[in-house]
Design a protein around this nucleic acid. Sequence first.
DNA 1: GGGCCCGCAGGG
DNA 2: CCCTGCGGGCCC
Length: 353
Amino acid sequence: MGEQRIGHIDGIAPGAEFHRRKQVKQANLHRDTMRGISWIADVDGLDVADAIVLHGGYDDDNDDWTQVRYTGASPDKEKYKEAGIPKLLHSQSWTYQDNASLKRSYERKHPIRVIRGWKGDARYSPINCYRYDGLYEITAIRTAVSKWPAPDGTPIEICQIDLERLPSERQDPTSVEQKIADLLEQQEELEPLPQEELEVAEEEPEEEAEDAPPYGEKFPKTRTQRVQRLVRDAAVARNVKELHDGECQVCGLRLLGPDEKPYSEGAHIRPLAPPHSGPDVEPNVLCLCPNCHVRLDIGAIVIADDWSIVVRAGALGGNVLPKLKRLKKHKVHLDYIRHHRKHWLGESDPSQE
DNA sequence: GGGCCCGCAGGG
DNA sequence: CCCTGCGGGCCC
């Protein structure tokens, strides 16, 4: 189909979501529909890895968003499943094609596209789909001993790969301007966003750069960022808002516009901006009415570990539910709730007893 | 959420 | 052809 390449795929910004592996492949993000590791021939014909999928995988994996520890591949016949998670019968080898390609990407300092699937770490997984999370570089490779020995007790060596997310300024796709415009059009065709939402999406990154030049002066860069934010909001926040059908998870209000469509906002529990630097992922986003969005952002409400809503200030005349409304399909992660609570209550947290 | 069982879509 | 794999959707 399309052209396979190392690095960004033109027109696909980090945050873009795809329903199934087939669509990930069709977007040229990953060559395969089942393997974790994707590889292509480099200029000299030798294979290098260009993408990986984080989708549950092995027990030795670890995901901390910016830092990822990945386990190499093994032939099927050398593994078995226990509690749904693959366990190895034999040590892995750096000569196995998938692992060798990762090693070569490390040596050549090639970036790796990271795609997270719905079976991955609950803190970062999208809802029933796959998300392109941008470029990572391999910072280290090593042969490690797996936490899980073989059934007969012999230790198993694995190919371990450490990756680190490239800084955000290197995540901007240097794509053709026209393709960005096309993507923008596609997104708006799917569901036209209200003007307010566009403005909100643009305001957030500008908070840090107070004396930023006027919009027109840095047109290409700003334009790219704008598309990225659009794609992210279009995918992550929209998923959450749709699942809740616009109903506020804190007060239960379902605000309707004149068009009979519910209006709600995707609120980040752990803010995106530094120093918080929370991830823009579904488990970190709540569907809130504008009022409760502000209440969350200014710490007028915090949420306890049992999901009960603690009103701290300024709630006269405003009702809140006893507990945060949650859905089976939208799993909010406690890590973000705790981060928010700790930020507003400090170390001495009475609700954590 | 785990287990099962039937897969497709490469690539040798 | 045949083999393989960080699927997928169903069941409960």
